[in-house]
Amino acid sequence: MAAETLFFFLFGAAAVGTALAVITRRNPVASALWMVGYFLTLAGLYLTLYAPFIAVMQVLIYAGAIMVLVIFVIMLLNLGNPEQLRERFNPRVGLASALGALLVLQFLVFLLSRPTGYQAPSPKAAELGSPQTIGQVLFTDYLFPFEAVSLLLLAAVVGAVILAKRKVEP
């Protein structure tokens, strides 16, 4: 068995386990910490697909930046009593889980009924994931979307500052 296959099963099982932990923990801080584990296992899965650049971005942006933001907001809510953040048992869990299982079954039937025909990664895959290849395409063919994303991030930062202000003057 190839090492990539072994790591696929290892990280795949870990990803499903950590994702389930995120949505089942009753304390949001515990959810956030499991979420960091989920992001790290996904970075491992990207490595089995020869995408080191995306894997590093995953750790930097998601595990580094976004989760710090989430933990900060939980802290800023400044709840005297941590019980205030806890949830009661929700009777909709059974129905939602059944619908979720149905959705996975639907995906399974769809994927098995029409095989994509790709049995192994492309031989070019190893060089595709390198920062050099991605940077070259990003700054030539995709330069306009790249600049548009910078505007989007600027708008999001301004929006977040306005929304989080204590009092907004009319």
């Binding site: 995120v22 949505i23 899965l45 697909l49 995906f107 994927l111 095989p115 994509t116 790709y118 049995q119």
Partner: peptide
């Protein structure tokens, strides 16, 4: 020996569904 593409797609679908249930 490598896994076919469907293995990754099925894992992705499972994780997506966990998100939906959440």
């Amino acid at each position: 020996e490598r896994l076919p593409l469907e293995a990754y797609l099925l894992l992705s679908a499972t994780l997506f569904t966990i998100g939906v249930v959440g």
